[in-house]
Design a protein around this nucleic acid. Structure first.
Lengths: 100, 100
DNA sequence: CGCTTATATAATCCAGTAGTTATACATAAC
DNA sequence: GTTATGTATAACTACTGGATTATATAAGCG
């Protein structure tokens, strides 16, 4: 699984947003997704780990998950050339509105 | 299917990159993905259409596909808050290197 | 009008993913 | 040491997505 597939899953995006606020233990994350069972969340975390979006450090019997800084950069790099398209489009639209 | 799932598929990202260069007919796109059959490409194009990443205009019996300017903006909007993370990380790294 | 070309849809198959329950494994606590 | 807690893995199931072949639809062309 690559980083694109990883973030395609809504629950995983939710996990990322929680970790963007602050580091959390696996248990806290499980509690934050009440529609899923503990093993389900654990597997999602494993996926996020494997594609480099999060990292774990042990704290006794807990596992503390943290967002990995540059994990999403691959997606950002990919999107960069396309950004030009909607920027140009927006510029053209403004131009159009100005000239009315 | 949402835009995240749409771009999670490598062949669809390939199609988008081709359309970023210039508009193309369905047939040209089919020829550009020799590992896939014509119906397979057609379905990918349908997906890209349905999530608003491309648009089609008929030209006689041909269909001309074009990148839709703002289709990827939803992904860009999503990634924006995270961008802060690797920017901060990079800044901290530079700081560290300076102070050596 | 047939016949070909361009594209989309239908039917079907297979593989992979996300979910579940059950269980293993470690650390903590008594 | 036994029990409880926190987390991960195993085994299994169900669904979905991407592929294929066959077919439909529609526009060019002789």
């Amino acid at each position: 699984m690559d980083v694109f597939e990883a973030v395609a899953e809504p629950n995983r995006r939710h996990l990322l947003s929680l970790l963007a606020e602050r580091d959390r233990t696996a248990g806290e994350l499980v509690d934050s997704l009440p529609t899923l069972t503990q093993p389900a969340v654990s597997r999602h975390l494993r996926v996020l780990r494997e594609v480099g979006l999060v990292e774990v450090r042990p704290d006794g019997q807990r596992r503390i998950y943290a967002l990995k800084p540059d994990g999403l950069q691959r997606i950002d790099d990919w999107i960069t050339p396309y950004r030009r398209f909607w920027r140009d489009h927006l510029a053209a639209l403004e131009q159009h509105l100005e000239n009315r």
